[in-house]
Amino acid sequence: MTTKPPKGHFNILYFASAGSYTSKNVEALPAPLPLRKLFATLEERYQGFRASVLDHSLVTINLTYVDVPGEDAAEEAEEIVIQEGDEVAIIPPVSSG
């Protein structure tokens, strides 16, 4: 299994095309991070990642699918925030079978 992220971080897993684009399968990013800022944070690290991969991908937090709100979404009281120790994954379109 994935190594536990360092204190104050969460793990993000990159599968298939996400892994090819970032040249890694997993990395630790600073937590907490509001979910609506996730794609912008990743785009900053990997230019072009959003259009190539993220816009066609789904996101899970701790094995549960979540809706990623747009960045301009108003800050809401119940907004999802990625927490220290969470496991986030980028799920590109699947191709089993």
């Binding site: 699947v94 191709s95 089993s96 079978g97």
Partner: peptide, 10 residues
């Protein structure tokens, strides 16, 4: 399975 299972083919 083909639509949903989180497996990827290269």
């Amino acid at each position: 399975c083909k639509a949903r299972v989180e497996v990827w083919k290269r």
